[in-house]
């Protein structure tokens, strides 16, 4: 089941960005994105899981860049969310392969998908809530907020690394 979800996530991620870019007449770029999606699927099929992090980063950056190309923010969000799903599930798939108990694997799949659904669901809710709030900020205020955000993320990362 996890394998199928990975294929679906990569396809959805690449498909959303390809469609968004093609709709804005960036045809050659959209073909490149589609090819990158196929390449990611091929890498996964060949068991080259170490490239999933790189593929994830590339698709997140493409999602960002696509916003400059006037692609719909929803499609860009789909690009980020589905690439995150594919990257996470690839790691989870590797972990499942380390157990030879099918029963355990099914149980863990259910728990993992529940947790992922929660994260993605909250992300979508948060995103739609955030995009409806319009606040006009000066560059200085935005920069201050950005620094605050970076400090918060750094503190979170530090906490997570200390737990390892």
């Amino acid at each position: 089941m996890t394998r199928n979800f990975i294929y679906a996530s990569i396809s959805a991620c690449a498909g959303a960005l390809t469609y968004g870019l093609a709709a804005n007449e960036y045809v050659s770029v959209s073909i490149t994105v589609a090819l990158l999606g196929i390449a990611w699927i091929v890498l996964f099929m060949r068991g080259l899981h170490r490239f999933s992090g790189l593929a994830f980063a590339v698709f997140v950056i493409i999602s960002l860049v696509s916003l400059w190309a006037d692609v719909s923010p929803v499609l860009a969000l789909a690009g980020v969310s589905f690439s995150l799903l594919a990257w996470d599930l690839t790691r989870f798939h590797q972990r499942l392969q380390m157990t030879n108990s099918q029963q355990d694997a099914r149980k863990m799949e259910r728990a993992h998908f529940t947790r992922l659904a929660l994260v993605i669901g909250l992300s979508l809710l948060g995103y739609f809530a955030v995009t409806r709030i319009h606040v006009t900020l000066t560059f200085g205020a935005a920069a201050l907020l950005a620094l605050l955000g970076i400090w918060g993320i750094s503190a979170l990362v530090y906490r997570l690394r200390s737990l390892e």
Binding site: V60, L64, L67, P73, A76, V80, S123, G126, V130, L160
Partner: peptide, 13 residues
């Protein structure tokens, strides 16, 4: 909208 794209990653962390 671009900053909001970080939301799924932050929630994941």
């Amino acid at each position: 909208a671009m900053v909001a794209l970080a939301l799924p990653l932050v929630l994941y962390l």
